[in-house]
């Protein structure tokens, strides 16, 4: 039993280190898009590691830890997607390293088509 507890505790430690790296990444990345990439991935993975570690420590609470893990894996990408779609629409600036932006091109094309249709009248 002792060895299982130590394995579990080490997984919790790995999870907390992943969260620490995410926090450093939030400061190093140049724009909001890259920041949310690091933030979403690393924080989800941190929770997954922590919960798997706790399942090793306390197997009788399996259901609760597993539900929290699934819940975070399902909801975290959705919320960040909603946030970034709104921000892109409102013109959140991309960093100068960006090489291509298909979404903006397509939106401008759509806008142009709309204006042309209205202009014929």
């Amino acid at each position: 039993m002792d060895i299982l507890q130590i394995i579990g505790a080490s997984m919790v430690l790995i999870g907390s280190l992943v969260l620490l790296i995410a926090s450093i990444g939030l400061h190093r990345m140049p724009d909001a898009y890259n920041r949310i990439q690091v933030g979403t991935k690393a924080s989800t993975m941190s929770v997954v590691f922590v919960m798997i570690g706790f399942i090793f420590i306390l197997p009788s609470w399996f259901g609760k830890f597993f539900t929290i893990m699934l819940f975070v894996m399902l909801t975290n990408p959705i919320s960040s997607n909603v946030l970034m779609r709104a921000s892109h629409k409102k013109g959140e600036p991309l960093s100068s390293k960006t090489v291509i932006d298909n979404l903006k091109e397509d939106e401008e094309k759509e806008e142009l088509n709309k204006n042309n249709e209205n202009g014929t009248f």
Binding site: L26, R35, T40, S43, V47, N76, S79, S80
Partner: peptide, 18 residues
């Protein structure tokens, strides 16, 4: 910007679940 603040908020709450 507001987006950066909300990203930090989101990461913070999910991290504190652990």
């Amino acid at each position: 910007t507001i987006t950066n603040r909300v990203i930090a908020f989101d990461t913070m709450t999910v991290g504190s679940l652990g």
